[in-house]
Structure formats: C-alpha cells, structure tokens
C-alpha cells in the first residue's frame, strides 16, 4: 500500500499580518507523506498544526514554499482549482461533524456527489453503500438531530469517503465524543486506512488517539519538532 510521495511540503511557510505584528504560523516546513500512510499530527494550539492541515486540505495556500500534491505543484492554483482538488482528492472529517441540519443522513452523504453532477440514482447507491460501510445501515433517513454524536461522526466519515478520495483529513475527529465512542470512531478510521488504502492525516491533542496513527508529527512554534514511526499497538483490537 505504501507508495511514492502523495503529499509534499517544500520549505512551506505561512505568515499572518504584516511588519512587527507578523505571525509565523509555519516556518519553512519540509514534509513528505506517502500514499496509504496514517499520520497523526499533534502540537499545542498555535503550533501551526491547523495551518498545515488547512494547506494540505487545499483550504489555504502557503505564503512561500511549495505544496506538491501527487507530484503537482499547487502554487498559483485558483480558488476553483483548489475546490476541484478538494472535490476529487480529499475527504474531510471535522471535530463538530459539520453536517447539514434538518437533512437526512443519506442526503448529507450524497452532498459531495451532487456537486460532481452525478445522477440521482447512482448517488443514492453510493451513499447507501458508504453508510453501510460506517455501520449506519438502517439509519439512512434519520435527520442529523435524530442521531447521537458518534452516529453523526459516522455520517461525516461516510460523506468523506463516498467520493473515494485519496486522502482522509480528520481534524480532531473525536474531540466532541466520549471515550467509548472515540474508540469506535478510531477503529472505523483505522479500518478504512487499512482495508480501503485511504491515506489518513489526523490532527488531535490526545496522545491515545494519536497512537492510532503509524506515524506521529509534532509541531511546535511553526516547526516540525519530531517525526517518528509508531508501534501498531492497537492492532489487537481489529
């Protein structure tokens, strides 16, 4: 599964503000992530981990340096090009789930396919399959409010994987969940990484959640403080 470089940062910096007040959120970061990896990112707030995540997710552009995706440099990408990168290559899972309110689970999952212009029947088929994969068979027509936090996060994961993306970006995916549910969600993400070969990049501030990753990046003050492989201590669970 592990292949050539999927995501690469070359001397990536990100500044906010001007002059004296300039904040250096990322300072000349070099980084490479290969297809099929499961990378955890940790760091205190203000360390630059969220900024790095936004750049990886095509939501933000570096101030200097180069972000290379699948060998393609993205500097000079227009807003529309970044959108197409997100649409076709990336899936997002957020801490606050970010599902559409008053909308059924299956319609939430269909949403990214709607923007691809996919026909209604095909969309429904893929969305139902994705919901089954995250263990929500039978709950397809429940609206967001009728689902528990864990179930909502499962819907969000289904929405992220329904487009069969190259990378799943998870930003504090268990931040709003209790321990038991957190474990269930992490097992689901681990399974998707392992069985579907989806590259997972996850930001968290909890050590035991970060431990699910096979590689751990620690950010401090806009620098990459450490980058180490981790033992697969949770393998026994699966």
């Amino acid at each position: 599964m592990i292949g050539s470089s999927l995501i690469a940062f070359q001397q990536v910096s990100k500044f906010y503000g001007r002059g004296e007040a300039t904040i250096r959120a990322l300072d000349k970061i070099d980084l490479s992530i290969r297809a099929g990896e499961f990378v955890s990112i940790m760091g205190p707030s203000g360390s630059g981990k969220s900024t790095a995540m936004n750049i990886i997710g095509g939501l933000d552009l570096p101030s200097s340096g180069e972000y290379v995706f699948q060998g393609i440099p993205t500097s000079g990408f227009s807003r529309a090009q970044l959108t197409l990168l997100r649409r076709h290559m990336l899936g997002f899972v957020f801490q606050g789930f970010n599902l559409l309110a008053r909308t059924s689970a299956v319609e939430n999952v269909e949403l990214p396919l709607v923007y691809r212009g996919m026909d209604h029947r095909e969309r429904r088929r893929l969305a139902l399959a994705a919901l089954e994969q995250v263990g929500l068979k039978g709950r397809e027509h429940h609206t967001t409010q009728e689902l528990s936090g864990g179930q909502q996060q499962r819907v969000a994961i289904a929405r992220a994987i329904v487009t069969d993306p190259a990378v799943l970006l998870a930003d504090e995916p268990t931040g709003n969940l209790d321990t038991k549910t957190s474990v269930e969600i992490m097992e689901l993400i681990t399974r998707l990484n392992r069985e579907n070969g989806i590259t997972v990049i996850m930001v968290t501030h909890e050590e035991d959640i970060a431990a699910y990753g096979k590689r751990l990046l620690r950010f401090v003050d806009g620098h990459l403080a450490s980058d180490q492989a981790q033992a697969k201590e949770h393998d026994h669970v699966l």
Partner: peptide, 16 residues
C-alpha cells in the same frame, strides 16, 4: 455561513 463553509469545503464551486 457554516452551511456554506461545509459546501465549499466538500467541493462546491463558487458558481454552484
């Protein structure tokens, strides 16, 4: 605003 953010993040173009 949040709904618009979700739509943009998961691949809605400005035009859409």
């Amino acid at each position: 605003t949040r709904e618009i953010g979700i739509r943009l993040a998961i691949g809605a173009l400005e035009n859409q």
